[in-house]
Design a protein around this nucleic acid. Structure first.
Lengths: 205, 205
DNA sequence: TTTATTTTGGACTGGACAGTCCAGTCCAGA
DNA sequence: TCTGGACTGGACTGTCCAGTCCAAAATAAA
């Protein structure tokens, strides 16, 4: 069923998913299917032509949103540049309205959708940590960082980049959201001091 | 109304609040008043004898829970000891089932109860950061830490202590929750390296 | 043009739940 | 013992919503 290359259908389904994401993003799983249908410019029954029920639609939407939050990590000139680029990309995605919304929704519904929450956790934070840890491990081997547990180091950097600002956006959206690039750099420098090679007496400008 | 020193009433009201907290903790704001009443060993109407409605009951319960999560910070022998004691206390509270539950509930309901969420943010994370920042500022004046923005430093320490483990508990409760005291110490040492005084070429063990 | 599929619109069921009302019961203190 | 305030039990309203069914209209493809 629900063949997906039929012209009208092919156009309808993505519209539904997009509309559903908007609705869930703003109102959480509370959002009614009526609301989703209205946003998609479609009637409620049509939703059931494409998805067996609300739960499955929610699952599809969340997986879609999860994918769109993933962060890339590419090498730069120096370790510091690489980490700063990573930090900016991470903060941009995670602290964006979509990033905050998907986080909020999954935290709220983790008890109802444990597999979805676990999937998000594994594909998001854990995968990001893993990839960052590889970069850090390489840097450790090159003597650019003190030898330590790369996964631990990665957790520390990610935590410092995100934690407090995400909290603010989650709980006090009215408040100001200051400091962008400057904060990223400050955190990366802080991280580099914490994990500087043991012997090095060097100081960076 | 709802006089509170009347024997039966005085015993009933706290029982309701406790029952409500249990219900909201497990099922979020979804929890029905029927469920709360059953847990309190009381009939639904009795709830309305003490609270004007679900929202107000929820508010009372959340303020109560917020208060119980607050972290103390007392000076110890050395800065390191002080921070480790703080780290342990913070992690114990924030990562406890109650800490996770109140966080989850408020993140989920922040749109519906913005004042409650804002209150929690201000009384919890922000207040904690502020108190920690004072300790750090004092240490900076004594030359025990590099001169830097104490609020920023406090954010970094708190983030490192909590972030990833909270995420795990929120999203993948089935997974293992390893590392306790050891992690606190590792984080504090990491923090002390990051904010060591600029000139000091000392190395710890 | 014909045909198969999708979409529409509207009606209906069943369930959950907040909030209200009221008559009757229980109990602590005067 | 009496009495007022608190609790009980049950019924009732209004609302919201997921999910189902169906006949009619629209539309794309053969």
């Amino acid at each position: 069923m629900t063949g997906q290359a039929n012209g009208r259908t092919a156009a309808t389904r993505p519209r539904i998913v997009r509309a559903a994401w908007e609705a869930f993003r703003e109102r959480g799983y509370r959002a009614s299917l009526e609301e989703v249908a209205a946003r998609a410019g479609v009637v409620r029954q049509t939703l059931y032509n494409h998805f067996p029920g609300k739960k499955l639609l929610f699952g599809e939407v969340v997986r879609h949103a999860t994918r769109s939050i993933l962060v890339t990590l590419e090498g730069g000139e120096s370790l510091r540049e690489t980490l700063i680029a990573f930090g900016r990309a991470l903060r941009e995605r995670v602290l964006s309205p979509d990033g905050i919304a998907v986080y909020r929704t999954l935290v709220a519904e983790a008890a109802t959708f444990p597999e979805l929450a676990g999937h998000f956790f594994a594909e998001g934070p854990v995968a990001t940590r893993e990839r960052l840890a590889e970069v850090l491990a390489a840097a450790m081997r090159k003597g650019l960082l003190r030898r330590d547990d790369p996964a631990f180091a990665a957790e520390m950097l990610i935590a410092m980049l995100i934690e407090f600002d995400r909290l603010r956006r989650l709980l006090a959206p009215a408040g100001k959201h200051p400091a962008g690039d400057h904060k990223t750099e400050a955190v990366v420098d802080c991280f580099l001091r914490a994990f500087a090679p043991r012997d090095s007496g060097k100081k960076r400008t």
